[in-house]
């Protein structure tokens, strides 16, 4: 992509803070430089806020290439260095198949089907989530 495209829009992805958890929602095509910017922003925000969890919602992303896959893995790795756990949420089936075919199984990455499950995962600590908590 030429410099002309990396205008003011391609800069930052908003990082929301929900208590001890940071939340990022990725939408549409993600520019490589935007992904790298996000990586930096997250590292700084975790340090400032002392967050213990990061949720990255990629349900709006149709194409995850090897670069973005690597960036996700790196975000998880650096977050764990800063004592925060990362959960990637809402990966589309087609994206999952593509990543597996590329050999990117992202073993260090935690995943969840929805932000709700991810939130439970991060706030409760244990992977067991009481989906059937309402039962006696």
């Amino acid at each position: 992509m030429s410099e002309a495209f990396s205008g003011p829009v391609a800069g930052h992805v908003p990082v929301l803070r929900l208590g001890d958890v940071l939340m990022v929602t990725l939408q549409g095509d993600l520019h490589d430089s935007t992904a790298q910017q996000l990586q930096q922003d997250l590292a700084e925000t975790i340090t400032h806020s002392g967050a213990t969890g990061v949720i990255i919602d990629i349900s709006g992303v149709e194409i995850v290439d090897s670069f973005l896959g690597r960036v996700l893995a790196e975000i998880a790795a650096q977050a764990s260095l800063l004592a925060a756990r990362t959960v990637v949420v809402g990966m589309r089936p087609a994206v999952a198949i593509t990543l597996v075919e590329l050999g990117l199984t992202l073993p260090g990455l935690r995943t969840a089907l929805s932000t709700e499950v991810a939130m439970d995962l991060l706030t409760q600590g244990a992977p067991r989530v009481g989906v059937r908590r309402e039962s006696p």
Binding site: P93, V100, T111
Partner: peptide
């Protein structure tokens, strides 16, 4: 299995 795990299952 890997693809399902990536999706959070």
């Amino acid at each position: 299995v890997a693809a399902a795990r990536l999706m959070g299952a």
